[in-house]
């Protein structure tokens, strides 16, 4: 890992908890609200991950 988590943390985001919280609030809204159903969003999420070799 090129950015180590802080002591007691799990990921690089634990270096910036307020930023991570803001991201999670936006991400949660993105998933649970809007005109596009969650299955379609999931297809886009997985396709993007495949393109960039992300292991999700």
């Amino acid at each position: 890992m090129r950015i180590q988590p802080p002591p007691g943390g799990l990921s690089l985001f634990d270096h910036q908890p307020e930023l991570f919280a803001a991201f999670n609030r936006f991400y949660g809204t993105l998933w649970t609200d809007g005109e596009v159903d969650e299955a379609a969003k999931e297809v886009g999420r997985l396709r993007n991950a495949r393109i960039v070799d992300c292991g999700i």
Binding site: Q16, E18, L19, A21, A22, F23, R25, F26, G28, T29, L30, D33, G34, E35
Partner: peptide, 19 residues
């Protein structure tokens, strides 16, 4: 940004700048 996303998007952008 769609209205329903705007508050959390704006808060994320603010956090990005502040950090």
């Amino acid at each position: 940004v769609p209205d329903r996303l705007s508050p959390t998007f704006a808060a994320l952008e603010q956090a990005v700048w502040e950090t």
